[in-house]
Simulated assay, not measured.
Amino acid sequence: MQTSRVSEVFKAFLLLGLTSFGGPVAHLGYFRTEFVARRKWLSESAYADLVALCQFLPGPASSQVGFALGLMRAGPWGAAMAWLAFTLPSAIVLVLFAFGAAVLDGPIASGIIHGLKVVAVAIVAHAVWGMARNLCPDNTRAGIALAAVFAVVFISGPLGQVAAIVLGGLAGLALCRGVAAAAADSEALHFPVSRQVGIIALGLFGGLLVLLPLLAGMAVWLDITDAFYRSGALVFGGGHVVLPLLEAEVVQSGWVSADEFLTGYGAAQAIPGPLFTFSAYLGALIPAGGSLLAATLALLAIFLPGFLLLVGVLPFWNRFRQWQSAQALMRGANAAVVGILGAALFDPVWTSAILGPHEFALALTGFLLLTVWKLPAWAVVIVVALGGVLIAP
């Protein structure tokens, strides 16, 4: 029975991994349709609670929801198969793209690559626009988002991201209690995770976060693990918000050039599945990393902290979610995410891709295709990439 359930989980998530375009918010919509409405694995209220938990924790929210759904349906093997099936298709495509991008040459290829960098502006701008409307619906949370922008601007690197989230959560705790929704009568979530396992997972999360920086420098594989683990551990909001953290780790360190970084980020928009698979592309480009081995290591390292935190929190979540203070804290942290993404829209996305009026017009076209004509992200990537050929010198 358990084996059939594991197989069921793998097949369901593989189909989603091949077809789920549109980013983390769209993925959550796909999951709801498949597992709440069609398969009825859990109720609407239970699913809403699970999404709220994963949005609150650092890491890729949609992948964490998928991991939890697999865990709930078929235990640890179900969780592993849910992640593998949902992640592998896009990871394979991006690694192949990394190997091919290094040998691309000629005006047409250069134009496509430039178009992929420009489309990143449209994608991130669209994400900021949508998240601002949903997560900053009042003056208080708009102010928290603005404060987060200043925190990121004045405190560069990953530390600025963490400071913005912490300050946003504290501000939410103080100012957003009035809008916090009570969760007392929501359906409890039940997962096959004991308190002991939860405590071990939390210990591993914290231990690796402290130990890996101390071991970095001893071997390339430890450097790669440290950089991508830290990025996965410190990012709130998942998806696009990991962009500035990864940029700080791989571009500022000299592993990957800014052009290679934005080219891969643009390509990641054209494929289904989680955006965190962008890490596999970056790992494949790291010198002396062994290419495929480094890509695999980067992919595992960036997902691991989010999953450890999720497993660690699940046994305690039902009690925590009833606290009004927790609801207020989550609203402040989510508003700060909007500010972080807004800052990333300018640097490095805008400053690296928009070199003149032609690039601006192309990026604006992509933004309007997303917001007004409601085209899927993969279609906009194709249009803007081809536009890059037209504007190429």
Rank of each mutant, 00 (worst) to 15 (best):
S7C: 13
V9T: 13
F10C: 14
F13H: 07
L16S: 09
G17L: 06
T19M: 08
G22P: 12
G22D: 14
V25H: 06
A26H: 06
F31S: 00
V36T: 03
S45F: 00
P58A: 11
P60E: 14
A61S: 15
S62K: 07
A68F: 06
L69Y: 01
L69R: 02
L69A: 07
L71S: 04
W77L: 15
G78F: 07
A80D: 08
M81D: 01
W83G: 02
L88G: 04
S90P: 09
F97Q: 04
A98Y: 01
F99T: 01
L104F: 15
L104G: 13
D105R: 14
G106T: 04
P107E: 13
I112E: 03
I113M: 15
H114F: 06
A120L: 09
A120R: 06
A125K: 04
A125L: 15
V128I: 14
L135R: 02
T140N: 03
A142K: 13
G143K: 06
A145D: 12
L146D: 07
A148Q: 05
V153H: 04
V162P: 00
I165W: 03
L170R: 02
C176H: 02
G178S: 14
V179P: 02
S186L: 13
H190R: 13
H190M: 12
L209Q: 07
V220Y: 02
Y229W: 09
Y229A: 08
R230Y: 03
S231N: 13
L234I: 13
L243P: 01
G266L: 11
Q269H: 11
L282T: 04
I286W: 00
T296F: 15
T296E: 11
L297W: 02
L300M: 12
P305T: 03
F307D: 03
G312R: 04
F316K: 00
F316P: 04
F320Y: 11
Q324V: 09
S325I: 04
M330T: 08
G339R: 00
G356T: 02
F360P: 00
L362I: 10
T365K: 07
G366I: 01
W373E: 12
L375C: 10
P376N: 15
A377V: 13
I382E: 05
I382W: 10
A392I: 01
A392C: 09
P393E: 12
